[in-house]
């Protein structure tokens, strides 16, 4: 199995962090993994995206021409990437700021108002972790435990309170998606 996911949004929304945290947790689970960020001139102008491939076999291309999952944190990302998603794939939408919906019928769509939820939690910056909660629930690429442990390792020695709020944020996103 190889699962490919594209994370995309504005710079500052923690889009690359979403990818790196997924890649780290997949590595810690023992999977093969590649993480490929958009770089250079294409990052200027405020957009950011990255691609994570996770597999139980060697990963050939780190590029996702047909990602299984797409996480869009802003509207331009939806327009850019929605048609790449493989048939039967899933699109996660930051519905707090994206009103549009995919114009395809062959993909599943999950709307998560992660920016509003982050505000409710009192920290605007955890919208990405909330979205990761929703994504992990649906994709099941790694277990919540491994994800949260890996996230803590990446955040390093930063404040304990940060780990706490991340846990809460992740749980909020995880619980938001119904089985």
């Amino acid at each position: 199995m190889i699962v490919k996911t594209i994370f995309s949004g504005f710079g500052g929304q923690g889009v690359l962090m979403m990818g790196i945290s997924l890649a780290n947790s997949a590595m810690n689970k023992g999977y093969h993994v590649t993480y490929l960020p958009a770089y250079g001139a294409e990052m200027r102008g405020g957009t950011a995206n990255c691609t994570v491939a996770v597999g139980d076999e060697e990963i050939a291309s780190p590029v996702a021409s047909e990602p299984d999952y797409l996480i869009v944190m802003n509207l331009p990302s939806l327009f850019t990437f929605q048609n790449k998603v493989s048939a039967g794939g899933s699109i996660f939408i930051n519905s707090s700021i994206i009103d549009a919906r995919p114009n395809r019928q062959d993909v599943k769509t999950f709307c998560v108002p992660c920016a509003d939820m982050a505000q409710e939690l009192g920290n605007n910056r955890v919208a990405n972790v909330i979205m990761m909660g929703a994504f992990i629930k649906k994709s099941n690429v790694v277990s919540p435990d491994i994800y949260l442990k890996s996230l803590e390792i990446i955040m390093g020695s930063r404040k304990k309170t940060l780990a706490e709020i991340n846990r809460k944020a992740f749980a909020a996103g995880f619980d938001y998606i119904k089985d």
């Binding site: 890649a23 993994v33 590649t34 993480y35 780190p62």
Partner: peptide, 10 residues
């Protein structure tokens, strides 16, 4: 190449 330089792997 740019892909190898930018890509992360374990």
């Amino acid at each position: 190449d740019g892909m190898m330089g930018q890509m992360m792997e374990p």
